[in-house]
């Protein structure tokens, strides 16, 4: 009654990986290529979901869920706040086509160079495998390391967030009349 006896189990892992990668790349392409800003945000959301899938694939479910909670649930929503203040319809094109091609070419060149650099680094870099698995990636291990090895960063982040919440409260309590 082992799990491996089920057909296609070996392909399942590869399937999950391909699904996550495809989602990430497709989301990124939608975000970059769409002219409507709202579709761009939707693409970003799809891309973040794909990234979460990749984290899950790398056996970090905590990180995957945090990616969804923070990037989909908070960052994309915050971007949408910004979008709501802008025009709902896409503005008419005022740029000259020659300029558009020039800027597009330049950004393509830059991104190709970055891509080449990163891929070269990851393929030919002198990576050493860790001698042992440091933690098991469980919530408990993450909690322990946050409160021991990384307590300084943890405290700083919590302080920043606390100040942000208190600031929001102060602004909300001042009311609109004093402007």
């Amino acid at each position: 009654m082992t799990a491996a006896a089920f057909p296609f189990t070996d392909n399942l892992v590869a399937g999950v990986f391909i699904l996550a990668v495809t989602t990430t790349v497709a989301g990124a392409l939608i975000a970059a290529l769409s002219t409507r800003i709202i579709r761009g945000v939707a693409g970003l959301m799809v891309c973040c979901l794909g990234l979460a899938g990749l984290y899950y694939f790398l056996r970090s479910p905590f990180l995957a869920l945090m990616e969804i909670l923070i990037y989909v649930g908070a960052v994309c929503v915050t971007i949408i706040f910004g979008v709501m203040l802008s025009e709902p319809d896409e503005p008419a094109k005022t740029e000259k086509p020659v300029h558009a091609i020039l800027w597009g070419g330049a950004s393509l060149l830059v991104s190709l160079m970055i891509f080449w650099g990163v891929s070269r680094l990851s393929l030919h870099g002198a990576w050493t495998a860790p001698a042992a698995r440091v933690t098991d990636g469980s919530i408990k291990a993450i909690g322990v390391s946050l409160l021991t090895s990384y307590s300084m960063a943890f405290e700083l982040i919590s302080l920043v967030l606390l100040v942000a919440i208190l600031g929001a409260l102060v602004i909300a309590r001042m009311g609109r009349t004093k402007a």
Binding site: A42, F62, I68, L69, V72, G73, V77, I80
Partner: peptide
């Protein structure tokens, strides 16, 4: 073993969808 977090992270997509 992270069920509660799971519920809240997937629950947060709801806003985006309605919007």
């Amino acid at each position: 073993d992270y069920g509660l977090l799971f519920v809240f992270s997937f629950g947060s997509i709801n806003v985006m969808a309605l919007m």
